[in-house]
């Protein structure tokens, strides 16, 4: 299999972060959840800018997701193809969001009747 050797170079056998590492990631996720909860009680929308609450919540969620994907799902030690796949999924979802919203956000106010 001459071809996929190159994909395989970085793939160490049974790469992971060991039990202490898993526990650390777990801790981060728990803290992240609590922070999400706590931040939601603060009125960032008025203090910072409208939508700040949602933005912070999403940033934390992204951070948590990254931890899960990299360490629990072992992507950190995977081939470039897997990295690309994981990113492509989100990129494509972003395309769907962007191209749908480019319609909704550019409609005249008059078209919002129901």
């Amino acid at each position: 299999m001459a071809e996929h050797k190159e994909d395989h170079e970085e793939h160490g056998e049974h790469a992971h972060i060991g039990i202490p590492g898993y526990l650390v990631v777990f801790g981060i996720l728990v803290v992240g959840t609590i922070v999400t909860y706590a931040v939601a009680l603060l009125d960032l929308d008025s203090k910072l800018f409208p939508g700040a609450n949602t933005l912070v919540a999403l940033l934390i969620a992204f951070f948590k997701m990254t931890c899960v994907v990299l360490y629990f799902m072992h992507v950190r030690w995977q081939s470039k193809l897997i990295w690309l796949t994981a990113l492509a999924g989100f990129f494509w979802m972003a395309i769907m969001f962007a191209f749908t919203m480019q319609d909704y956000l550019t409609r005249g106010s008059g078209t919002f009747t129901n």
Binding site: T33, A40, L41, L42, T54, L58, I60, M65, V68
Partner: peptide, 22 residues
């Protein structure tokens, strides 16, 4: 299993925590 977990990580703030600060 992790993927399903990730979906929930997003669902929780996006569904449960929208108007708490009000």
């Amino acid at each position: 299993w992790h993927f399903v977990d990730i979906v929930w990580i997003f669902l929780f703030p996006l569904l449960y925590l929208l108007g708490r600060h009000f």
